[in-house]
Simulated assay, not measured.
Amino acid sequence: MVWSYWRAVIRYGHVGKGKEISVARYLVMPDYFMMVDVMTVINEMPGTKKRAMTSLRKIDYTEYLEGLRAEKENFFLQRLFEGKEAL
């Protein structure tokens, strides 16, 4: 299967009353996914706000790998996924 890679800046809630945090996420989707399909997936992610996506663009594989490394160092994402590795 052929894949496409995306960089999305997503607004997350649950960081205090009326507050939010924006985090860059790096996603891999099937190649036939269009931008609208990726937006639908993002809006269904847990912890996201309504109209969660701030920006979205298609990237290449090397930028995707660099982004995954950055995600692993992001404290907010570490807390968000805490305990979900066992699933």
Rank of each mutant, 00 (worst) to 15 (best):
residue 49 K to L: 11
residue 58 K to G: 10
residue 74 N to I: 07
residue 49 K to P: 02
residue 29 M to V: 13
residue 71 E to I: 04
residue 15 V to H: 06
residue 71 E to N: 07
residue 52 A to D: 02
residue 48 T to E: 09
residue 16 G to A: 12
residue 51 R to P: 01
residue 43 N to T: 06
residue 71 E to T: 03
residue 28 V to T: 14
residue 39 M to A: 11
residue 8 A to R: 00
residue 75 F to V: 15
residue 72 K to R: 07
residue 37 D to A: 05
residue 20 E to G: 09
residue 43 N to S: 15
residue 85 E to W: 11
residue 36 V to T: 04
residue 10 I to C: 01
residue 77 L to M: 05
residue 75 F to A: 14
residue 57 R to T: 13
residue 54 T to N: 08
residue 34 M to W: 08
residue 72 K to H: 07
residue 71 E to R: 00
residue 70 A to C: 03
residue 14 H to Q: 10
residue 81 F to P: 00
residue 36 V to A: 14
residue 15 V to M: 10
residue 21 I to F: 11
residue 70 A to Q: 13
residue 40 T to G: 10
residue 26 Y to S: 02
residue 68 L to G: 09
residue 31 D to K: 04
residue 81 F to A: 02
residue 23 V to L: 08
residue 27 L to N: 01
residue 16 G to P: 02
residue 56 L to R: 00
residue 58 K to F: 12
residue 48 T to K: 05
residue 63 E to W: 04
residue 75 F to P: 09
residue 73 E to I: 05
residue 16 G to S: 07
residue 55 S to F: 07
residue 73 E to G: 03
residue 57 R to P: 01
residue 45 M to N: 05
residue 9 V to M: 11
residue 37 D to W: 06
residue 76 F to P: 00
residue 61 Y to G: 01
residue 12 Y to M: 01
residue 41 V to Q: 05
residue 44 E to C: 06
residue 81 F to Q: 02
residue 37 D to M: 02
residue 80 L to Y: 08
residue 37 D to F: 04
residue 33 F to N: 05
residue 60 D to A: 02
residue 50 K to G: 12
residue 13 G to W: 06
residue 86 A to D: 15
residue 57 R to F: 12
residue 24 A to V: 03
residue 65 L to G: 02
residue 3 W to V: 11
residue 33 F to S: 07
residue 12 Y to V: 04
residue 17 K to I: 10
residue 46 P to V: 09
residue 23 V to F: 07
residue 52 A to E: 02
residue 41 V to H: 08
residue 64 Y to A: 09
residue 81 F to G: 09
residue 87 L to E: 15
residue 9 V to E: 11
residue 27 L to Q: 03
residue 61 Y to D: 07
residue 64 Y to V: 05
residue 43 N to Y: 09
residue 1 M to K: 06
residue 38 V to E: 02
residue 48 T to W: 09
residue 26 Y to L: 00
residue 19 K to T: 10
residue 51 R to A: 13
residue 46 P to A: 06
residue 15 V to N: 03
residue 42 I to Y: 05
residue 74 N to D: 15
residue 16 G to I: 06
residue 37 D to S: 05
residue 53 M to I: 07
residue 51 R to S: 13
residue 1 M to W: 05
residue 12 Y to F: 15
residue 7 R to E: 15
residue 85 E to Q: 14
residue 42 I to D: 01
residue 51 R to E: 14
residue 42 I to R: 00
residue 19 K to W: 08
residue 4 S to V: 04
residue 68 L to T: 08
residue 41 V to P: 00
residue 70 A to W: 04
residue 40 T to S: 12
residue 47 G to K: 00
residue 38 V to N: 04
residue 14 H to S: 14
residue 28 V to Y: 11
residue 81 F to N: 08
residue 7 R to K: 15
